Simulated scan of single mutants.
Amino acid sequence: MVRPHSQSFVYDEHDVTTMLDDISFIRESGAAGIVLGTLTDDAKVDTKTLEVLLQAAGSMNVTYHRAFDEIADQHEALQVLSAYPQINRILTSAGPRSALQSVEEMKALVHASAHTQITILAGAGLTVPGLAAFVEHTGVKEVHFGSALRKDGQYLRPIEPEKVQAAAKIIASFER
């Protein structure tokens, strides 16, 4: 993830320089892609900064991260982001709530992204027991898990392989 700090998704010149250095290092390391997100002060996609970062990323795949969840008009933002061929995913909970609380919004984003190169990557608050119903209702094809796949649901605990396998099996059961 290319993110110079956790204060916000609005970046100044120093932040952008740091991000460019990080992207350079990541590219030189042979990574297939990066995760990033840029916003303006009024919570819209900062296309000026985004274009600078995408140029540095070259041919790497790009996931636009949960900065997307701070944008009021996500459908407009989806159209803006779809103009950049490198961006092939948006990691989102479809707004400020958890993905499980934003089922209808997620479904609408999946539908809106259908004729773009962007896949909606659902994340935040997903659980293995609720995954099948969530996928069935929203149509998402990819999910992102955090603590739900870790022992006792704690970020600092080890990942439990059986939970990963269970989630993967659920997603695979929806592949067409």
Results as ranks from 00 to 15, higher is better:
His5Thr: 10
Gln7His: 09
Gln7Ser: 12
Phe9Ala: 05
Val10Cys: 12
Tyr11Ala: 00
Tyr11Thr: 09
Asp12Cys: 07
Thr18Pro: 05
Thr18Cys: 00
Leu20Ile: 14
Arg27Thr: 09
Ser29Tyr: 13
Ile34Cys: 07
Ile34Ser: 10
Leu39Phe: 09
Leu39Val: 11
Leu39Pro: 06
Leu39Cys: 10
Asp41Gln: 09
Asp42Ala: 09
Asp42Lys: 10
Asp42His: 15
Ala43Ile: 07
Thr47Val: 15
Lys48Ser: 13
Lys48Cys: 12
Leu50His: 07
Leu50Gly: 08
Leu50Ala: 02
Leu53Thr: 08
Leu54Gly: 06
Ala56Val: 07
Ala57Leu: 05
Gly58Met: 10
Val62Cys: 12
Val62Lys: 03
Thr63Ser: 07
Thr63Met: 11
Arg66Glu: 07
Ile71Gln: 12
Ile71Tyr: 02
Gln74Val: 09
Gln74Gly: 11
Glu76Lys: 03
Gln79Gly: 08
Val80Ser: 04
Leu81Ile: 14
Ala83Ser: 15
Pro85Cys: 10
Ile87Lys: 08
Asn88His: 06
Asn88Glu: 13
Arg89His: 11
Leu91Tyr: 02
Leu91Asn: 03
Thr92Leu: 04
Ser93Arg: 01
Ala94Asn: 07
Gly95Cys: 14
Pro96Arg: 15
Pro96Cys: 13
Ser98Met: 11
Ser98Leu: 15
Ser98Asp: 13
Ser98Gly: 09
Gln101Gly: 00
Ser102Leu: 11
Glu105Tyr: 03
Glu105Leu: 14
Lys107Leu: 00
His111Phe: 07
His111Gly: 03
Ser113Val: 04
Ser113Leu: 03
Thr116Gln: 06
Thr119Gln: 05
Thr119Tyr: 01
Ile120Leu: 02
Leu121His: 05
Leu121Asp: 02
Ala122Met: 08
Ala122Glu: 02
Ala124Ile: 07
Leu126Gly: 01
Pro129Leu: 08
Ala132Ile: 13
Ala132Gln: 05
Ala133Trp: 01
Phe134His: 00
Val135Glu: 01
Glu136Pro: 04
Gly139Thr: 10
Val140Ile: 01
Val140Lys: 01
Val143Leu: 00
His144Ile: 03
Phe145Val: 06
Gly146Cys: 00
Gly146Asn: 02
Ser147Thr: 11
Ser147Asp: 06
Ser147Arg: 12
Ala148Asp: 01
Leu149Pro: 03
Gly153Ala: 10
Gly153His: 05
Gln154Phe: 03
Gln154Val: 15
Gln154His: 14
Tyr155Asn: 01
Leu156Gln: 04
Arg157Asn: 12
Arg157Val: 02
Arg157Ile: 04
Ile159Ala: 13
Pro161Val: 05
Glu162Ser: 03
Lys163Trp: 02
Ile171Phe: 01
Ile171Met: 05
Ala172Gln: 07
Ala172Lys: 13
Arg176Leu: 04
Arg176Glu: 11
